[in-house]
């Protein structure tokens, strides 16, 4: 049955309409969880507010488990789901640059759009920066194209790399997440701050 679009059960235009509705859900959850506040987001890097850690990892685990169950029930063919490619050099370099941008700007692209939607002016300035940064990348593309395309490893999954099943890997990830949540709760008690 699923995924619906790759199985041609819905049209492209229906898919776009559903994308819009999924986006509403995405924006609503981000805002309601406090991701429209840069000081709340930055809190995870100082320990006073670890909402990012909790929401982010809970979200990843719920989606991952959901897909495993859907696959188990025969509702969804996981082979048709898009797996992000791994280009080793650019994913590390890009991640490092994004991390620097995150701690300086206090947002990531999704959260900045969400924050701008409720009137955060700092988020609007961050978005201006995003456009400039993307434009620099697209204009200078010939300069870093070889870095961008270097060390292509295909579409590997982490559990295959380690050599364990998806289910067992999911269990390990859940245990790791609970350990991080425990640390997060401890950190919030150690560095208490009023809420922004």
């Amino acid at each position: 049955m699923g995924p619906l679009l790759p199985n041609e059960l819905i049209s492209n235009n229906t898919n776009f309409l559903l994308a819009f509705i999924i986006g509403i859900g995405f924006g609503f959850v981000l805002e309601a969880s406090g991701f429209s506040s840069s000081r709340k987001l930055a809190g995870v890097f100082y320990g006073y507010d670890t909402v990012v850690l909790k929401v982010f990892f809970t979200g990843a685990i719920v989606a991952m488990l959901g897909m495993l169950f859907f696959s188990l029930f025969g509702w969804m063919d996981l082979n048709l789901v898009y797996i992000n490619p791994t280009f080793l050099t650019s994913v590390i370099l890009g991640g490092v640059i994004m991390g620097a941008g995150f701690i300086m700007g206090g947002f990531c692209p999704g959260t900045s759009v969400c924050a701008a939607a409720i009137g955060k002016i700092d988020a609007m300035f961050f978005i201006i920066g995003l456009f400039i940064g993307i434009f620099i990348f697209t204009e200078g593309y010939p300069i870093w194209e070889h870095i961008y395309k270097a060390k292509f490893l295909g579409f590997p999954k982490l559990n295959e790399l380690i050599g364990i099943s998806q289910g067992f890997f999911a269990l390990l990830l859940i245990i790791a997440a609970f350990a991080m949540f425990w640390l997060g709760e401890k950190a919030e008690k150690a560095f208490p701050r009023e809420e922004y």
Binding site: A100, G101, F107, P109, L130, I132, I134, F137
Partner: peptide, 8 residues
């Protein structure tokens, strides 16, 4: 930060 994040 936006410029860096956009590029990255």
């Amino acid at each position: 930060g936006g410029i860096l994040f956009g590029f990255g």
